[in-house]
Amino acid sequence: MTPLPTAEIQLASLLLPPSVIGDLRFIGALALVTLVPAWLDWRLRRGGKSSNTSSH
């Protein structure tokens, strides 16, 4: 027996076609894995610069 879709999926399906939901899920996963480490690297280097500046 096929399990019933959750309320969230039913609601999303009313608002967006399934193909668009799939596209958004894939692009969101790509964006997440691209932006999170890039942002952490930027924070790390910016934090290092400000701590170097404040120590002098």
Partner: peptide, 15 residues
């Protein structure tokens, strides 16, 4: 100076 900073470990944990 940055190698000891905890943020690089945050990156590893996040990944």
């Amino acid at each position: 100076g940055l190698r000891r900073w905890n943020e690089s470990h945050v990156m590893l944990a996040a990944l």
